[in-house]
């Protein structure tokens, strides 16, 4: 029973990843797209915890989500926000 629930959770997380990736492509406002991309990275960190590699999850949460989002926001604040 527990295994089935874990599988359902994994499938839901992966579904969320695909939805986030499509949403990033569709959103016209760049700042909103970056925030959706940050949630994409956080869900990806949870997926890697599910795949039993906690160090990759930690680096993804720190670098792939935190630093990349900060750099993107810095670049958007130097350029324009609308697509």
């Amino acid at each position: 029973m527990v295994d089935v629930l874990t599988e359902v959770l994994n499938v839901l997380l992966l579904l969320f990843l695909v939805v986030c990736a499509i949403a990033v492509a569709q959103i016209r406002d760049m700042l909103s797209a970056v925030i959706v991309f940050a949630s994409f990275g956080l869900i990806m960190a949870i997926v890697w915890q599910q795949l039993s590699s906690p160090d990759v999850a930690m680096v993804e949460a720190a670098l792939g989500t935190g630093v990349t989002t900060l750099l993107l926001i810095a670049a958007i604040s130097k350029t324009r926000r609308a697509e």
Partner: peptide
């Protein structure tokens, strides 16, 4: 599927910052 979505975004959108985000999705 994620790789294809990222590549499609990178090829069809003309905004350079969105191309960078799509490249990150492909990496992931």
């Amino acid at each position: 599927l994620l790789f294809v979505i990222g590549m499609h975004t990178m090829l069809t959108h003309s905004n350079l910052i969105k191309k960078v985000i799509a490249m990150n999705i492909m990496d992931t």
